[in-house]
Amino acid sequence: MNIHLKDIYIAERLHVSELFIPAGTLTHVIGQNGAGKSTLLHVIAGLLSSESLNAEVTITEIQPGHIAAHRCCLTQHNDSVFGLTVAELFRFYTPFAVAPAQIDEVLAVNQYQSRLIHELSGGQQQRVHIARCMMQVWEAIQQGRGVLLFDEPFDALDLAYQIKWLACLHDLQQQGNIIVIAHHQLAWLNECPNDDVLIMQDGQVQANGEIATIWQPECLTQYFHIPEQHIPLYLHTPFMG
């Protein structure tokens, strides 16, 4: 199972001539605001279609009709004006009434079962939505045939949960699942040298490959326009010469 994108063009948002994401990888998609990170995730998820005629978005070995059982995508906006409980959310959007033990161990969401979502704190809500997304494709994940897309999942998550959840994702990656995370927590790149990074700018992929080989101090200056003297201490990576 691989993701293959070809000739993707969406005016003023995204232009990717070719992109290949193999099974068993965890990719960090980074870039400035408006660089096209969310658009890229939405294209992979099948939410947006390319405007070009020869565009191809393929997830090999997965029938297009079964995509919803294999691919999940955490989007940035998940609010409801209706007072849904966590249990209802799980029932409406996943095949499970409660989170499977493995997910609950990491995200501790089952304790909120009877609570209204909008009464939870921002971080608690984020954990619930992350759990919901993973539960949607949990069967596929367990077979190592899941495609997990997350758009800014670290937002509002406290560090303890970020650590636990990322460790869980690395386990799932080992089983063959494809994981793509768009985020702004660049410090995580220093911690995960064996993950992949995909740097975006102006709707185009500027660099793509293993973090240890690609992530350089120049990247911050080149793609984020941060002058060298302004690079914060915590972003001075072990591979920064």
């Binding site: 998820a45 099948g46 995509i67 998940n78 609010d79 409406f92």
Partner: peptide
């Protein structure tokens, strides 16, 4: 109809 509570995009993700 249950899939519409979180907006159109989340319904689309369910197929």
């Amino acid at each position: 109809l249950n899939s519409l509570y979180l907006g159109d995009i989340n319904a689309q993700l369910l197929g």
